[in-house]
């Protein structure tokens, strides 16, 4: 049997909101270590990787070595509309069960339950190596969200140019070109901090449609971390409640290849 209780149900709600427009069906891979999810978008240029460690849950039980729970994202987000922001969530599935039961509770006054039919989803797991990035950028989620939204008005692709001292986001579209520079700002108050760590400068182009999609996970944490290496996928990482010990939601995006 699998049973997990999360007092802060909105965390799960935010996770599903963050991935629902990228993936239609996903597998929840449950083990005694927690929950993992890996899924690609339909065009196979981006990858979502979720890790929820048991520390994020108040209670966690998985009797089997592993269980795979196939979820339709549209149905899950529909179910999570039932979940209030202060509700706790309990997920429960029998070993050979065909459903995942969600219970949303606020105290003992209001208890809602929904049994979701599980799906059989074929998915291949890719091996994501532990990568040391040439450039790491930590910036407020609100800033990331704003840059991607504003730049999407001018073009389809955005160049991220990371150099010592700061990072430049630029777009070159039909009406003209523009750029936004964020300076390495380690000594300001936490919510405005921008940390740019560079071993070697990297400049890459990415599709704004995907960068904007990843921004939907912004409510999960205060800061987002970008990892860049030349000619490898960009990593966009949201630590759950800004604590890597609880887990993370990571997105990977293949760079545009310049002609």
């Amino acid at each position: 049997m699998f049973e997990a209780v999360l007092s802060n149900g909105s965390t799960l709600k935010k996770i599903f909101e963050g991935i629902k427009d990228l993936c239609t069906d996903v597998n929840f891979d449950v083990s005694s270590e927690g929950i993992k999810l890996q899924a690609m978008d339909s065009s196979h240029v981006s990858l979502v990787s979720l890790e929820l460690h048991t520390d994020v849950f108040e209670q966690f039980r998985c009797d089997r070595d592993s269980m795979t729970l196939g979820l339709n994202m549209k149905s899950v987000t529909q179910i999570f509309k039932i979940c209030g922001n202060d509700d706790s969530v309990t997920m429960r599935a029998e070993d050979e069960g065909e459903t995942l039961e969600f219970t949303f509770e606020k105290g003992e006054d209001r208890v809602s339950t929904f049994e979701l039919k599980l799906m059989d989803i074929d998915s291949e797991h890719l091996g994501i190596p532990d990568t040391e990035y040439q450039c790491n950028v930590k910036l407020p989620c609100s800033e990331y969200q704003r840059i991607c939204r504003d730049m999407a008005g001018f073009g389809d692709n955005m160049t991220i140019d990371c150099q010592k001292g700061g990072v430049t986001f630029s777009v070159d579209g039909e009406v003209g070109k523009g750029k936004i520079f964020l300076k390495h700002q380690p000594n300001v108050e936490e919510k405005h901090k921008v940390i740019v760590t560079v071993k070697e400068g990297v400049e890459l182009d990415f599709a704004l449609r995907y960068l904007n999609n990843f921004a939907k996970a912004a409510p999960l944490s205060d800061h987002v971390q970008l990892g860049l290496n030349s000619d490898t996928p960009l990593s966009v990482r949201f630590d759950i409640e800004d604590k890597a010990t609880l887990g993370s939601l990571k997105f990977f995006l293949a760079p545009k290849i310049k002609e």
Binding site: M40, H44, V45, S46, L47, E124, H125, L126, G127, I128, P129, N157, D205, A207, T232, P233, F252, L253, A254, P255, K256, I257, K258, E259
Partner: peptide, 14 residues
């Protein structure tokens, strides 16, 4: 238009 490689080409199947 610049192209894009599939994400599988970067991450090996274990």
């Amino acid at each position: 238009k610049p192209g894009q490689k599939k994400i599988e080409s970067y991450f090996a199947l274990p």
